[in-house]
Amino acid sequence: MASGGFEAFLEARADEIETALGAALDPASPLLSGTPERLLAAMRYAALGGGKRLRPVLLAEVAALLGAPRQAALGPALALECIHCYSLVHDDLPAMDDDDLRRGRPTVHRAFDEATAILAGDALLTLAFGLVAAEATLAAQARVALVAALARAAGAAGMVGGQALDLGAETLTLSESEIATMQAMKTGALIAQACEAGAIVAGADAETRDRLVRYGEIVGLAFQLADDLLDETSDAATLGKAAGKDAARGKKTLPSLHGQDWTRRRLDALVAEAEALLAPFGDRARTLVELARFVAIRSR
């Protein structure tokens, strides 16, 4: 599939997620009935109106690769996107990364206020677990496994822990392994969890699950490397968020440690590793192969 064709494919999948997420965030939804109007408006502002939807698309494609019906993956996919959107709201806060722009629009604390942004993030986080629990197309055992995996990936041993390390490292000197660990937690954990969740939805065996989790870890590392490279080489108009802030704030990244040429070579190696992991699935994994390539060469 040509890169332009694959981008169109991703946009179509993202549109599907957007529609389903809008329905999940409807005031008439059973999980949100009675939500204060301003809080729900902030939640919808945070979660709708843009984004690559990489994590839910990845989850759905892994589940589809393993033969699961697309509907079975929907609740877990929306839950994962709610977690991701909450993390962006909190990351943008003045006490964290202090950003004014996200997806080409004012960040939630700028469009509303800081307290509302914190509560909107809290509400999206909580909603995520309700969406998994409410997915009636999945057996109870699968829902429990999904909740446990999501809690670990999103929590202190995963994304939240990675953010804590990132904030604490701004005035420190880190080794390559320390930077890689931090980024695997902050960014990679939810991307790997997307693959794990897709395997859980499909009832995959342990070997298959482990293979796809490793693929997700590689995609997560490639995503972060590409993101850090774009922060150095792109601009706010292209990215839809501030550019060049990593260096200004002393953020520790692998491109800042090794340079842009090393980063591009490393991205090529990661794509090759992802392709090797997917080789046993043959042509059925073509979409996941293309997704790994897209993550590595994206322009925003």
Rank of each mutant, 00 (worst) to 15 (best):
D205Q: 06
T116C: 13
P30L: 11
G67S: 06
A2I: 11
Q224I: 03
P27R: 13
G34T: 09
A14G: 13
D91H: 09
D210V: 02
R53Q: 08
A184E: 14
T173I: 02
G158Q: 12
A79W: 07
A140G: 07
A272N: 05
D15R: 15
A274I: 05
L138H: 07
L277W: 03
A46F: 05
M96A: 15
L254W: 06
E273A: 15
G67C: 08
G203E: 10
L190Y: 04
P56R: 12
G250A: 01
A276E: 14
G216I: 06
D228N: 10
G50K: 04
A285N: 08
E7A: 15
A274T: 06
L58F: 14
V201W: 11
V295N: 03
T187I: 02
T208N: 04
M96F: 11
A194Y: 08
L65P: 12
R152N: 11
G130D: 10
A142K: 15
A77H: 02
M1I: 08
L225I: 10
G34A: 12
V132H: 08
G282Q: 12
R55C: 09
A136D: 14
V289E: 13
G216M: 06
I118K: 02
D261G: 05
T126M: 10
A169C: 05
C85N: 15
D228G: 08
A95H: 01
T181Y: 05
A95K: 12
V160C: 13
R44I: 02
